[in-house]
Amino acid sequence: MARVVRFHRHGGPEVLRIETIDIARPGRGEVQIRVKALGINRAEALLRSGTYIETPPLPSGLGLEAAGIIETIGDGVEGLAPGDAVSVVPPISMVRWPAYGELVTYPAEAVVKHPPSLSWETAAALWMPYLTAYGALIDIARLGSGDFVVITAASSSVGLAAIQLANSVGAIPIAVTRNSSKKQALLDAGAAHAIAAAEENLEAGLKAIAGAQGVRVVLDAIGGPIFEPLTAAMSRGGILIEYGGLSPEPTPFPLFTVLSKVLTLRGYLVHEIISNPAKLEAAKAFILEGLESGAFKPVIARTFAFDDIVEAHRFLESNEQFGKIVVTV
């Protein structure tokens, strides 16, 4: 028996319940983990509210990131043993492999022995943001030295990971946030420039920064009207990678800008990396190297206790956080 978080109907944070259920032993190729910390992601709020890319049968668990100690291994598992300190790579389906619980089961290939220097909270805040940023900026965009890269929703865990990643390859990260309250914090976090989109002219600001070179790469989580000023500031042959959709407004297609600049507008899911074993191994090696060098350091916005999971989700939806929300178990 173990406590897990589930929801029996779609809705706001209040639908989340902590329940005690039987947990089956791990099957062949599986690992069971005694959880110490959980990472909270916006995808989980979307699943809970019924607007995610998965539609779960109810009641459903949820969660994409966890860190803890291996308690039991199934048959056929090699390289992992009870007592190992591990974190988990986000699974393709959080409905099949939910992370919100005291005891969780994952396929062994999704389990990583993380560097011993990481705290449980930091390990739980690691894989979703850095894998997302890596897949978009390194695997797809081939971001490199001297490239200007615009990062919207820059104070999110993915945004902050993207800033660190851009700096690690010599690119020039331009952070976009809604208002000026987070601008200095973004600069302190490594952004070369920061623009408050609700208070400044975004197109003019980006053109002033990038000059004639223009912005080659845009990593956007928002969509909506921001597409027009973003593409207007891009360089010929640039690429805009869309991984979110936070704006409730329609997203215009900037046809003549796309044509005249031969731009690429590309949708992206982190599943592209997670579901490809070779790409996942390359990503893990890149991220672990960045951790060891000190180039990568997850930013924790706030930590909640497991019993306060509803409050953690309310804080997520407040959009006040700077970095990752973590729950300790």
Rank of each mutant, 00 (worst) to 15 (best):
A189T: 06
A194Q: 05
A196K: 07
G159F: 08
S157W: 12
N167P: 03
A161E: 03
A197Y: 15
G159I: 00
K183V: 07
G159P: 12
L187G: 07
S156E: 08
G190N: 09
V176M: 12
Q184A: 12
A171E: 08
V149L: 02
E203L: 07
F148N: 02
Y130D: 01
A136S: 08
L186W: 10
P129I: 01
A154E: 09
D139K: 14
I172T: 06
A136M: 05
H193D: 02
I140C: 00
A154G: 14
A141M: 01
F148K: 01
S157F: 12
V150H: 11
L137F: 02
I172S: 04
I174R: 11
T152C: 13
D139G: 04
L165C: 03
A191S: 08
V149S: 03
T152E: 08
K182G: 10
L143V: 04
S181V: 03
V176G: 12
S168P: 03
A196L: 07
S168V: 06
A166G: 10
A153Q: 11
A208M: 09
A198T: 10
A194P: 09
N179A: 13
P129E: 00
A185Y: 13
A198G: 13
R142Y: 11
G205N: 10
A162W: 03
W127E: 07
I151Q: 04
R178G: 13
D147V: 02
L160N: 11
H193Y: 15
N167T: 00
A162M: 01
L131E: 03
G159Y: 09
I209M: 11
W127M: 07
A198P: 12
I140P: 05
A191P: 07
G205Y: 11
L202S: 05
Y130L: 00
L165K: 03
A208V: 06
A162V: 02
I140A: 00
A204M: 11
A161Y: 11
A189N: 10
N167D: 07
Q184H: 15
I174W: 14
S155Y: 11
W127G: 11
E203P: 02
A191E: 04
Y134Q: 00
S156W: 12
F148Y: 15
A194K: 05
V169L: 07
S156I: 01
I140W: 01
S145F: 15
T177C: 15
I209W: 13
N167C: 06
A197V: 15
A210Y: 12
Y134W: 13
L131K: 06
I151R: 02
A161F: 09
I209V: 10
L137M: 02
A166Q: 05
T132W: 02
T132E: 01
G135V: 08
S157G: 07
A196N: 05
G190Y: 09
G205I: 06
I138R: 01
G144T: 14
A192D: 09
A166Y: 05
G170A: 04
A198H: 15
V158N: 01
A141Q: 00
R142H: 15
S157L: 08
Y134S: 02
T177L: 14
A185S: 14
